[in-house]
Computed example of a mutant assay.
Amino acid sequence: MRVEQLADKWEQISGSNAVKGYKSLRITSSCYSDVYLAINEQGNHCLILSLPNDHDLKFKVIRKDKILLEYLADKSYVVMTLLDSDFNGLFDDLILSLFNAIKDIEDVAVYSKVFIQTFHRWVLFFTPEFSDKLPKDIVKGIFGELIVLKYLVKYLKYKDINDVLSGWVGPYDQGHDFVYDDRNIEVKTKDHKKVSVRISGEHQLEIEAGKELILSVVSVTEDLINGASLKMLLQELKELTFERFGDFSIVLKALHQKGLTLQNIVAYDNYRFKSEAITDYNCLEKGFPKIIPANLPSNISNVKYDLNLTEMSKFILRVREL
């Protein structure tokens, strides 16, 4: 199911008659559980999980500024209600993510639990906007990491889509930018004509036993006309994620660490970059130039240096033109 299909269903609902206080339409017959898109008497978008009458569910009402989850025992409905129409797009994303999570589950106890758990994962994103704006260099760095993530989602097909997404840990500022069982990836984003990247600490190129360590250098050109914004790149990544039945909240949670939401990301539309290439370097290759804790005196730390790339062709694993 795609966002466009949801938009068509919302239009169909708007013209229908209300039943039990809701205008509703079953999301699809291909889902084992009975899930309905609905509009209540106040005009709010809702998602309803209709449970069998003999299934008892116990949980407290969860009310936030923008969204509400409640159980209507007399109707056997679990109802998710959006309280602010400015978040309609994000609500549709939640619906798609939830649909992907429960569509193949037959057990009512399991799919009702997943329904509620999915709400808990997403409720974080229905919050007021952050006020502090990120500087351009941070935006460019996140842009580069998203470029790499999009590539991994498209081509790292031997891994589960959610494992690929969860491997992006750059925004958490812990260790490398991508962490997987078999490899770690450190991402640096540079202007296309620049010949060096900034290494911001002795741990950034530190090798973990039994894993590859790849330095992925994303070359970009600032281009307000033909370049892409964070919002545009995130939209592409969202479509890829839903096509593969993934959980997009994993990406949103990571962005949230940097104060980015689907609502405030438009504030960065004036930063646009054209992606030129991703160049992967093998940091395990003998002679790869790096400063790591193992070759530093114990009383020296927080080392920062520029890594010149002009004479590092022998360490290149691959170059991906974009």
Rank of each mutant, 00 (worst) to 15 (best):
D160I: 09
K188V: 06
L322E: 04
L322W: 12
V169N: 00
R121G: 07
L262R: 04
V19T: 11
T81K: 13
D269K: 10
F143S: 00
Y71M: 06
N162T: 02
C31I: 15
K190S: 06
N88R: 09
I147L: 05
F119S: 14
P297Q: 03
L156P: 00
L240V: 11
I147C: 08
V114E: 10
G15I: 09
F115P: 08
H203N: 07
E236G: 03
K274D: 05
G43S: 08
Y32S: 15
V251K: 09
L322C: 09
E236S: 10
F315L: 01
F248M: 09
L309E: 12
G21F: 13
G246W: 09
H176L: 04
I13N: 08
I48C: 13
G170C: 12
S219F: 11
N299M: 05
I39G: 07
D56K: 15
A294K: 14
G170M: 06
D93H: 11
L230V: 14
L255D: 10
V3I: 13
R63G: 03
S313E: 09
A228F: 09
L134S: 03
P289E: 05
D93P: 00
E276M: 12
L240T: 02
I116A: 07
K150D: 01
R320Y: 13
V169I: 15
Y32W: 14
C46Q: 14
S196C: 05
G167K: 04
K253G: 12
V197K: 08
N282D: 14
H45V: 09
L149E: 07
E236N: 09
K286E: 12
G21Y: 11
A209W: 02
W10Q: 06
R63N: 10
I138P: 00
L252S: 03
R183T: 05
N295D: 08
A228E: 14
Y158K: 04
R318G: 02
V114I: 15
Y180D: 02
K190M: 13
E212P: 00
L83E: 05
S298D: 02
K58F: 12
N295T: 02
T28S: 15
V218I: 10
I161V: 11
D65P: 05
Q42V: 07
I291S: 06
D84I: 13
H176R: 06
G227D: 06
D132T: 04
P52H: 14
F273T: 08
E239L: 13
V139D: 07
Y155P: 01
N100W: 08
D65L: 14
G144F: 04
E106D: 02
V251L: 01
C31V: 15
S76N: 15
H55D: 11
L317A: 01
D54K: 12
L37I: 08
G141S: 07
K211R: 06
F242N: 00
E321P: 00
E222Y: 01
